[in-house]
Write a protein that binds this DNA or RNA. Structure first.
Lengths: 122, 122
DNA sequence: CCTTGACATAGAGTTAACTCTATATTGTAT
DNA sequence: ATACAATATAGAGTTAACTCTATGTCAAGG
């Protein structure tokens, strides 16, 4: 199955402009048809999903580009790509730990407000 | 204990420029001494710690400003501030859930690489 | 007295990540 | 054949959150 940029935009919930921007940034470079139109495929869809994951976990576009370029070079870069992901796993782990701490502190603060407010109503 | 902006900058690990920017944005407005110099105190330190927490959990500065303005209005806004934090707790909860999902998928991918690589070495 | 360093304000510059505009082509329905 | 909607490129504009520069003030040490 092949998708025009418009279809692919709907599929991925990324704007047309964003897809072209990602192409400029060399994150995802789709095939072209004989009229020079972009032709995205299933594989591109899976790849975009992964790009989103990296973005959502705070990886900047430059780093994603690096990963994408290694990917484009083929199998010989598997090891290096794995290393990047292993590094990133550490980052993610730390993020989760920190957010949990923030959550705990936020809960404390909310509890404090609740106590303040109920004590005022007596 | 009172701190000049230079001291407070070191204490909070926020640049002097950033502290002044936060003041422009009405997040934290310290006292002034008779020479018009900023005078940060312990309470400001606790408040900056909380601002950082909100920032680190993705709250934009405009929303933090809103919270800060309510805070400046005093006790009568306690309820509204609590509501904001309760809302934000939901956001945070969702963030953590998502990051955990991303972590799981990342682990899968790493595992996949490891299997690929070991199978190639045989 | 004079220099120096920390502070003050106002406003310009930077960076990341989009997002939009202008203009030109092209495939499809009438 | 013609109109029109989707696509193409190049480049400008936007937003958030800083970060820096220019210029001026002032208190304390030599």
């Amino acid at each position: 199955m092949k998708y025009s940029i418009g279809e692919f935009s709907k599929l991925t919930h990324l704007g047309i402009h964003t897809l072209r921007y990602y192409e400029d940034e060399k994150l995802i470079i789709p095939e072209r048809n004989n009229a020079n139109r972009r032709c995205y495929c299933e594989k591109d869809f899976a790849w975009i999903a992964f790009i989103k994951r990296l973005k959502d976990t705070g990886m900047p576009i430059k780093e994603i580009r690096h990963y994408a370029q290694l990917r484009a070079e083929g199998n010989s870069t598997q090891n290096e790509r794995m290393e990047i992901l292993i590094q990133h796993r550490q980052v993610l782990k730390k993020q989760i730990r920190q957010l949990k701490e923030h959550q705990a502190k936020l809960d404390e603060k909310i509890k404090f407000y609740q106590e303040e407010i109920t004590s005022q109503n007596q």
